[in-house]
Nucleic acid binder design. Structure first.
Lengths: 216, 216
DNA sequence: GTTTTTTAATCAATCGATTGATTAATTTTG
DNA sequence: CAAAATTAATCAATCGATTGATTAAAAAAC
C-alpha cells in the first residue's frame, strides 16, 4: 500500500471531485449513484461520505470548487478604465473562456436550475450566477449611459449572450450536429468553437448595440 | 367511485400525461418516482404501467404528445411564397409561441439532452429537434442566397435565436430574477415576456442579418 | 358472464448511508 | 531509538428505505 501523506490526501479529494464533475454532467445528480461515482474514481464507496459527508456534500463541493473566483474576474474587467465596447468584449471573452474550459461544470449547474423545485442547492447556484450576470449588465448599462451603446433591452441582450453559449455547451448532442463538430474532443472545441462563438457575438453586438451615430 | 366510460378513459390517460409533464419538469426524470407521479395524478401506481407499460413509456408518451406536428408547422412557413425576412419572422414567432405555451415540455427535453450519456430517449429528442432547427436554417440560407440577408454564420444565428429562448425558458429561477417577472404565473409570461422576446429577436436580427445595401 | 379497469399487497433490486474491523501513519512515552 | 498509544484512512458487509414493476383479487363496465 502506498503511503498517504498530507499532500496525497488533497490529491485524492481533488481526484474524486474532478471525476464526480464529469460523472454528474454525464448522468445527472440523481442518475449518478454513489457506488458508480466511487467506482469511477477508483475509491471505496465509504470514502465519499468520509471526505464529503454525503452525496449532497460531494455535489456542493463540486459546485463550490468552480464558483469561487469566477465573479472577481468579471468585476475586475468591469472596473477597468477603457471604452465600454472594449470592456464588454473583454468581459464576454473572459466569460466564454471560463465556460468552455469547464463545460461539464456548466452543464451541471444549468441542469440543476432547470428544475422548478426550489432547493438550497438551486438557490446557491442561481444566487451566484445572478451576480455574474449583473456584472455584465452593469457594463452594458454604463455603455448606454455614456452614449457608446444604443438604448436596447439590456436584460434581453444578456439573455442572448448567455443563451447562445448555453445552447451550445448544454446541449452538445444537438449543437455538435448543428455545428458539425465532435464535442467529445475537448481540444477541437476549445480552439475552434470558442473562436467562432466569440467572433459571432462580437459581430452581432457590434451591429445591434454600437451607436454609430456621432450625434449622440 | 365515478363511472369510467370509454370517453373518460382517454381523458384519464391525457390527465396522467399532463400531470406527468409538469412533475417531470419540476423534479427531472430520475427525481420523479412513479409513486409521486401517480399520487399527483390521483391514480393508483399500477395505472402507470397499465396504461403506459413503464415509467420510461410514460416519459416517451409525454415527449411524443408534443413533438408530433411541431415540425409540420415550421415546414409550412418555410414553403410560403413571401420575402425571406417575413418568412423568418413568422417562423420565429411560431416557434416562440409553441415553446412558451408548453414550457414544461421544453424544460424536460433540453434537460434530457444536456446529459452526455447517449440513450434512445436522447437520440429520439435530438433527432426531432434537429429537424426543426434545419427548417429554420433553410429559411436563413434561402435569404442569404436571394440577397435579402448578409453572409453571416448561419449556424450561430440559429444558436443565438434558440439559445435566447432556451436561457429564459429553461432556467426560470435565474431569468425571472433577471427580467424581474414571476414566471409562476403562466399568463404574465405568455402575454408579456413572449412579446418582449419577439421584439428583441426581431430587432437584433434586423440590425445584424438584414442586407440594407441595395447593391447586393 | 365476460372483459376491462382498479386496487392493495408484494416483489427483487438498488439507493444512500453507516457500521465495526483492519491497516497505515503519526505522536507520545520511556 | 524503540515501544506504546493515538489518530487517520480504508475496507467489506450491511442497514433501513425506496425504487420500478408485478401480482392476484376485487370492482366496475358492458
Amino acid at each position: 500500500m502506498r503511503v498517504m501523506t498530507e499532500k496525497n490526501k488533497e490529491d485524492k479529494k481533488e481526484h474524486i471531485l474532478s471525476i464526480a464533475e464529469k460523472v454528474f454532467a454525464e448522468l445527472g445528480y440523481e442518475g449518478a449513484s454513489t457506488r458508480h461515482l466511487a467506482q469511477e474514481a477508483g475509491v471505496n464507496m465509504a470514502m465519499i461520505n468520509y471526505y464529503f459527508g454525503s452525496k449532497d456534500g460531494l455535489m456542493k463541493a463540486v459546485l463550490e470548487r468552480r464558483i469561487t473566483g469566477m465573479r472577481n474576474s468579471l468585476v475586475e474587467v468591469k472596473e477597468l478604465n477603457i471604452p465600454s465596447w472594449e470592456k464588454l468584449k473583454q468581459a464576454i471573452d473572459l466569460y466564454l473562456d471560463r465556460v468552455m474550459e469547464n463545460n461539464s461544470f456548466h452543464r451541471i449547474i444549468y441542469r440543476e436550475v432547470s428544475l422548478t423545485q426550489r432547493s438550497d442547492m438551486a438557490d446557491f447556484i442561481s444566487d451566484n450566477i445572478l451576480k455574474n450576470i449583473n456584472a455584465l449588465k452593469d457594463i452594458v448599462e454604463e455603455g448606454i449611459q455614456n452614449g457608446a451603446f444604443r438604448h436596447v433591452d439590456v436584460e434581453m441582450v444578456i439573455a442572448s449572450i448567455l443563451g447562445t453559449k448555453y445552447f451550445i455547451v448544454n446541449s452538445p448532442q444537438i449543437s455538435s450536429r448543428l455545428l458539425k463538430k465532435d464535442f467529445q474532443d475537448q481540444d477541437v472545441m476549445e480552439k475552434e468553437i470558442k473562436l467562432r462563438i466569440k467572433k459571432f457575438v462580437h459581430e452581432y453586438l457590434q451591429a445591434f448595440l454600437l451607436n454609430n451615430d456621432p450625434q449622440n
